Simulated scan of single mutants.
Amino acid sequence: MLRSAVERQFEIIGEALNQLSKFDPETAARIPDLPRVVAFRKILIHGYATVDDILVWQLATDRLSELERVVRMLLPENGD
Rank of each mutant, 00 (worst) to 15 (best):
E7M: 14
A60R: 00
N18M: 14
A5E: 14
I12F: 12
P35F: 06
N78R: 11
A29W: 09
R41Q: 02
V38A: 03
D33F: 07
E7I: 14
V70N: 04
R36T: 05
D24F: 09
A5F: 13
D62S: 10
E66D: 13
F10N: 02
R30C: 13
E15R: 08
V56S: 02
A5M: 15
L44Q: 01
Q19A: 13
V51H: 02
E11C: 06
T27V: 15
P25E: 13
F23I: 13
T61C: 06
I13N: 04
V6E: 06
R8N: 15
S21F: 12
E11P: 05
A60M: 02
V56I: 06
V38K: 01
D62G: 07
Q9P: 07
E77T: 06
E11R: 07
G14Q: 04
M73V: 07
A49Q: 11
T27N: 09
R72L: 08
A16E: 11
D62F: 05
D52T: 07
I13A: 09
I13H: 04
L17W: 08
L20R: 09
L17E: 08
K42E: 03
R8G: 12
I43Q: 10
P76R: 01
D24H: 10
R8F: 15
V56M: 01
P35W: 06
G47W: 07
R30N: 11
